[in-house]
């Protein structure tokens, strides 16, 4: 393993730093609107879920949903624009950097950004009195893992894509269904059992179970297999992305 992927992270960080105020603002404002709107609004209709207020249940899911969105936006749109529109990757290959360095760098960077978005939700949860003490902080490594998982999958799409249009398939066929099936907005057990099985084959449901377990102390059915599933998806994704990108850029 070599460490040169750090340079790519440094590059993306320096660019992000120029825009971090609008970036942080959206990181905080978007989920706050969701939480307040859905949490209090729908919360007043549904009462409690799993014996806790709906807004609390929702906040647990939003931790993961926000992480997912952030990792996806970075590894899909931002990375693709560096690959195709700006030709940033192509330029970097003229330095002593390889395609693998670039993909690993983008992967870790997207996960770090996702962790930041997830942390913003946690901050809001503390502010709204939905999280207490130090224990909820244990969710941060899970959010990083979820970020790596989602970013790995997104990078497969990015390295295959010919244009931005291609991502519509990924959203319609994968991300949107996964977001609504994975127990983020309502409990998994509300779904017919075969749909629950589908959801449990996908990463987000496992992220949500782990997150609620660590933040609220809800029971986690199979913590180790959930962690393993996230890791397998993420590593498989990034390995495929490395392969595809090597073929695409070293031709």
């Amino acid at each position: 393993m070599n460490w040169r992927f750090i340079h790519l992270i440094e590059r993306n960080f320096l660019v992000w730093r120029k825009l971090f105020i609008p970036s942080l603002t959206t990181n905080l404002a978007d989920p706050l609107i969701y939480l307040v709107g859905f949490g209090f609004g729908i919360g007043s209709l549904v009462g409690s879920v799993n014996g806790r207020p709906y807004i609390e249940f929702l906040a647990g899911g939003m931790l993961c949903y926000s992480t997912l969105n952030s990792a996806t936006a970075e590894a899909l749109y931002s990375a693709f624009s560096r690959l195709k529109m700006q030709r940033t990757w192509e330029g970097i290959l003229h330095a002593p950097m390889t395609v693998t360095d670039i993909i690993i760098g983008e992967w870790v960077w997207a996960a770090l950004k996702a962790l930041l978005s997830g942390s913003a939700i946690l901050l809001i949860m503390y502010a709204l009195g939905l999280a207490h003490g130090f224990r909820p902080l244990m969710v941060l490594p899970v959010l990083l893992l979820l970020g790596l998982c989602v970013a790995g999958l997104a990078l497969v799409m990015t390295t295959i894509a010919k244009g931005f249009d291609f991502f519509a398939y990924y959203f319609t066929l994968v991300l949107t269904p996964m977001s609504f099936l994975s127990g983020v907005f309502f409990p998994l057990r509300s779904l017919p059992s075969w749909l629950q099985d589908v959801a449990l084959a996908l990463p987000l449901a496992h992220g949500a179970m782990l997150a609620r377990g660590l933040v609220f102390g809800d029971p986690i059915p199979h913590p180790l297999s959930s962690i393993l599933l996230l890791a397998v998806y993420g590593v498989a994704g990034v390995l495929i992305a490395v392969r595809v990108a090597n073929r695409r850029l070293y031709r």
Binding site: L14, V15, Q86, H94
Partner: peptide, 10 residues
């Protein structure tokens, strides 16, 4: 390179 690939974000 033949086509400039300076980093437009910088």
């Amino acid at each position: 390179p033949q086509f400039d690939n300076l980093d437009p974000d910088f």
